[in-house]
Simulated scan of single mutants.
Amino acid sequence: MSERIGKKQIPQERDFTGGLILSESCSYIGSTGEKKLDDKIMALAQELDTGSNACLLAEMMVTAVRLSRGAVSTGDFKMMNRALKEMRIATEVFYPYRDIKKVAVFGSARTLPEEEEYQTAVRFSKRMAEEGFMTITGAGPGIMAAGNEGAGRESSFGLNIALPFEAAANLFIAKDEKLIDFNYFFTRKLSFVKEANAAVALPGGFGTMDEIFEALTLIQTGKAIVYPIVLLDSKGGKYWKFWNQFVEEHLHRLGLISDSDFSLFLVTDDVEEAVNEITHFYKNFHSYRYVGDKLVVRIKKKIKEKAFSHMAKEFKGIVKSGEMVQSEALPEEGDEHELDALHRIVFRHKRRDFGRLREFINALNDADTE
């Protein structure tokens, strides 16, 4: 592996929900309706998986059996089967690179190599590779090709979608082992959100709008963890400035979004500002997860007490009850022992106003540390 992508991070479970996936129980396996069959399924699951996933495997088997016997058409059954296979394949491809941060790059498939937006995408992805990030694109032409070109084949992933047009992957990712073919947009978009540590969009059409609004919606509603979203124009470009104007005049003015929602994204025409927005996000902040009703924020360096006291007062509005405290790893985090050395900030989070949570993460990265 090249030095460009050799900057290993402290590994963690790739749970893009922030702890919801890690909660597991054998209480919700369900039943096929036949006790003997349920027992056979559980026995088979325990034989195949002697680790902690036997109950999940049994639940998946029960679900498959019930689907085969229920009011499900052959077409729906095939769709569910293919969707599961696509998620499995994608997970297997990403797994060897799970300790390397990645940025998703979105934009128009129609952008030509000689256009400034294309060259901006090339420069951005090249800079992110220099910072140790890999790039994930949709594997098609235009901005997608530019993202793969800038990152280089070794630092690239391609999530190709089967369409009547644009069927072939771009030459910068074609035939690479990190190229994944999808039949469904929803499984493809899941991989973008689940595997990325940041997202950058250059000018694009309906698809780009769909990808950016989905990422913003998932983060705004707490269904996905907060990560940087950058809307990048070529130098002097106005595409995202006019988009931002629409958001201000037609969403914010009507009270359809909050003031802090603007903290969830950055609009810029400067490649270095875009790069800094992403790298600075991980300066001290590492990750977070929910443990019951507590939010556990993992950081690389402990915040000095005076600075922490100031932060606790400034951001008391995101605390549901009790106090914000600095802590060591909680016992409930025992499934992630590799993160024990990180410091924690723990509090009961209101689970809303995630723009304000983003501002809290910014403050963590700017605070005085020990």
Rank of each mutant, 00 (worst) to 15 (best):
F124L: 15
T17A: 03
F360T: 12
K36V: 11
V271R: 13
L357I: 02
D261V: 00
R88N: 07
N197H: 14
H310I: 06
A71K: 14
P96C: 07
S25H: 07
F182T: 04
N365H: 09
R14T: 07
G222Y: 03
E117N: 07
A129P: 05
Q220F: 01
A307E: 15
S156F: 12
L159N: 01
F165L: 14
G255R: 09
T221L: 13
R188A: 07
E47C: 10
M311K: 12
G30E: 01
K301F: 11
L44C: 10
K350P: 02
A307L: 05
K223R: 15
S155Y: 00
L202F: 10
V105P: 01
K302T: 05
E115F: 04
L232S: 00
H250S: 12
A45E: 04
F206L: 03
E114Q: 12
K301P: 08
K300V: 06
I345T: 01
E336Y: 07
V319N: 05
E333K: 04
N53R: 11
I278R: 00
N197Q: 13
D269V: 04
R82H: 13
A64C: 09
L190V: 08
D293V: 10
Q119C: 06
Q12P: 00
E92T: 02
E13Y: 14
E117F: 01
I303G: 08
E328A: 13
P164K: 08
A54L: 04
V93S: 04
R4M: 11
H250V: 02
G152D: 05
L22E: 14
K189C: 05
S258G: 00
T187Q: 11
D259M: 06
G205K: 12
F16C: 01
E323G: 03
A139H: 00
N160Y: 03
R348E: 13
V267T: 11
Y288Q: 10
A307H: 12
E130T: 09
E336G: 03
F165Q: 08
Q119A: 06
L190H: 10
F182M: 06
F347R: 08
S287W: 02
G207Q: 04
K178T: 15
L22G: 06
S321R: 14
K40E: 13
D181L: 05
I278F: 08
E59S: 15
G33R: 12
R344N: 05
E131N: 06
I5H: 05
D38P: 12
F77D: 04
E47V: 07
Y288D: 10
F94G: 03
N170P: 03
A90Q: 08
L254G: 14
S321K: 15
I180T: 02
S263I: 01
M324Q: 05
G147L: 03
K238T: 15
F308N: 07
N362P: 00
D76Y: 12
D270H: 09
T135K: 00
S263G: 03
F281D: 02
S327T: 10
E336V: 07
L84H: 11
S2K: 13
N170M: 01
E13G: 01
E34S: 02
E92C: 09
E249W: 06
S156I: 10
Y282L: 02
G75P: 02
